[in-house]
Design a protein around this nucleic acid. Structure first.
Lengths: 330, 330
DNA sequence: AACCATGCCGAATGATTATTCAGACGATCG
DNA sequence: CGATCGTCTGAATAATCATTCGGCATGGTT
């Protein structure tokens, strides 16, 4: 009679607690055990399905906006996450991460080779992936590290987590993202290790990438990109950045010095990957997203409500979006 | 947008909490409210049925023992409450009270006149009756107060609670249970107030009574019954007590001085009531219960598992139970 | 406008629940 | 037989949740 985990006992405890509204201490007296044990018995009862808690479905997506994105921009799938209009970017990312994760999980097949970029929203997304993954992925880091201060948003960290969560191995790109000298960069690209990664990027059938603008790019933020380079990119028509590749409104990589100093998945490689998922939160990326779509860099999009509206509005303004003109004018 | 109690919002909060396992504080950040509000929203969600918690049925009764009691002793209904074999009488009463209450509620019709005794188990039972009663009962106190120290087990208190819980009025018997002088007792019985109560006891169609033995009777416990009187009752063959009436093994009231000094429902009155429910916890009342059954004082029984087994064992020993003989021998 | 009644809010607080910890017990193995 | 796990327990404690409370806003009333 000591350790008695019979269903009958669990039912008694569960009933007293959930149905009759007794506190755990009261139940404990009833069943002649400690309150701690009651807590454990209740956990067990939930596990065994003796207690079942059902929650009416919450619809986390805006199917209406998704349909518009799909029909007007050809994104398949387009996933729009409800997020109220939180003024705070962190909240936005949290929402996209929380609800986007399940979708992303479903988009990745058990044996896929996944090219993965970094970024805060992607980080959030990856950290909401299920723990129990039993896939056998090959997760490949799609871009070098932005700087030496390792942080949780880097592709390296994020990739490690994804491989661990969904199951599979992680191939790291152990180089900086930006190398001041082209020669050095090219030398690095020749390294066996690096070439192996690139080969796997060629094999990738899924990619998950973020999207930056010229202004809020990680490279600017972390001072890798200086004023002069930004101006050069502007002159070359850059409206956004994907995996360290700056693109113009047509989605072609801008021919600047930067192009030869980056170590990351190439635009051409990206175009060949059948399922490229853009992950975005916030309203200020519309131009970059439109360019990426136009250049066939991304095929799908996971985005928040506000970002989706902004994107649709921007797409309406011009078949060919040219927001950069207004900026150049200043 | 402030007070937004939309189902959608509740669903979101409920999902994050119950399905996704976030803490209330995390949900609070997500929904941009305080943790306190999340707690309130969750309560509302449960109320509205957005969250549904179901517990596999726990069977609190021993139908097998009930069947035996019914077929062998004619109790209808017999209700046997599971209680493990808690060595502690208080736990026993709690179990009987908790699970017996629903049965008792179902046995009492909306417009019944209920004669009600006191006692610890009955007290426990009554305090587990539903709060929301909408009946129009007449609850009548079946026995005077044992002594002046009012306590929660007295018929007076218990009756008040029952009337309040199930709905209806309570008729109190504002006299002591025991009056040393017969003359005084009889004078009291003549009082308008007291006669009114007795008339209602005549009208009663349900009674709820406890059952005492000679040894553990409340009257002994509270020193109302002295040594000499106990011996006199023993000589008269008393094996138990119901509502202050001491009965012999055949269920007839013992003809002693005590009989004329008690103010309570009479044995004859009790016999006439179609539904008399005995409420008992513990293994030591078998003789009293058998006598009460034999004398047609009780028609139904609510009892714990252990008490039921003891009762069945005692009933097997003798068609006419005569446990008192062994005692008299000493 | 001034006033009250009402309802909602979150900070603080009180109450409850989950987890940690150290000890007890029992099984398994050398 | 110990020794050594592993498991289970309740007391203590940490973490979490529910409620109280005062403030603020709204809307109706004088």
């Amino acid at each position: 009679m000591p350790n008695d985990y019979s269903d009958d006992r669990l039912r008694l405890v569960a009933r007293l607690y959930y149905r009759d509204g007794l506190g755990q201490s009261e139940v404990a007296r009833f069943a002649r055990v400690s309150q701690a044990k009651v807590s454990r018995l209740l956990a067990l009862a939930r596990e065994r399905g003796i207690v079942r808690i059902t929650v009416a479905d919450y619809e986390p997506r805006r199917r209406d906006l998704e349909d518009q994105l799909q029909s007007r921009l050809g994104l398949k799938p387009a996933v729009v996450i409800k997020a109220g209009d939180h003024p705070d970017a962190a909240d936005l990312r949290r929402a996209v991460g929380h609800f986007g994760a399940a979708v992303m999980d479903s988009l990745i097949q058990p044996r896929d080779v996944v090219a993965l970029a970094g970024g805060r929203t992607i980080h959030e997304l990856v950290h909401h992936l299920p723990q129990a993954g039993n896939k056998t992925l090959t997760v490949v880091q799609a871009m070098g590290s932005v700087d030496s201060s390792v942080n949780a948003f880097d592709a390296q960290e994020v990739g490690r987590v994804m491989a661990q969560r969904l199951g599979g191995i992680f191939l790291a790109l152990n180089t900086p993202a930006f190398i001041p000298e082209k020669r050095t960069r090219d030398a690095l690209l020749e390294l066996e290790q690096v070439r192996g990664v690139h080969e796997n990027l060629d094999r990738a059938n899924v990619a998950v990438v973020g999207m930056g603008t010229l202004q809020n790019s990680v490279f600017v933020e972390r001072r890798v990109l200086d004023e002069a380079m930004v101006r050069e990119l502007e002159r070359a028509g850059a409206v956004g950045e994907v995996c360290g590749r700056f693109i113009d409104a047509n989605g072609n990589e801008c021919a600047t010095a930067w192009r030869d100093r980056v170590i990351s998945v190439q635009v051409l490689q990206l175009r060949k990957i059948p399922q490229v998922i853009g992950v975005v939160s916030g309203r200020d990326r519309s131009a970059a997203i439109l360019a990426a779509i136009k250049g066939h860099l991304i095929k799908s999009l996971i985005i928040d409500e506000g970002g989706a509206s902004a994107l649709l509005a921007a797409a309406s303004l011009a078949g060919t979006p040219t927001p950069r003109i207004t900026r150049k004018m200043k």
